[in-house]
């Protein structure tokens, strides 16, 4: 015979849950499992970039774009990364002859729309 459910039978549990510690690890208290040297979001130093686009040539996914918005003499360098395509291999970091790219261990890169995944470094 089917056991009858008491209305509000779970209320006690619900109230108890309000005071419990979260069962999952939340990022807002720090990421526990991310080690030093983890490959995450790239960092870019426009001052040293010589616009050789070697990084773009070696990127396996075509995620990185380097753009000079200024002139040849007056450089205005910008780097864009499509986080949705980047596989965080850091080959661009290895390829860059001027070492103006580096990787950080920032892995919190989720966004709500496709467009928000394209970020400027």
């Amino acid at each position: 015979m089917k056991k009858k459910e008491r209305p509000g039978g779970l209320a006690g549990l619900a109230i108890l849950n309000l005071f419990r510690k979260p069962a999952t690890q939340t990022a807002q208290f720090g990421l526990g499992g991310i080690q030093k040297g983890y490959r995450g979001r790239l960092l870019y130093d426009p001052a040293t970039c010589i616009n050789c686009v070697m990084c773009m040539r070696d990127c396996p996914t075509g995620a990185i774009t380097i753009e000079n918005r200024g002139t040849k003499e007056q450089k205005d360098m910008h780097a864009y990364l499509d986080v949705g395509r980047c596989v965080f291999c850091c080959q661009c970091v290895d390829t860059c002859p001027k070492k103006c790219l580096s990787c950080s261990s920032d892995v919190l890169l989720a966004a709500f729309s496709q467009d928000d995944l394209k970020i400027e470094l």
């Binding site: 080690q35 490959r39 291999c89 850091c90 290895d94 990787c103």
Partner: peptide, 18 residues
């Protein structure tokens, strides 16, 4: 896996070889 992440920087695709 934690060790491999420490060595290469990723748990699955360690990217150690070049």
């Amino acid at each position: 896996l934690d060790l491999l992440a420490q060595i290469g920087g990723n748990r699955v695709n360690y990217g150690v070889n070049t």
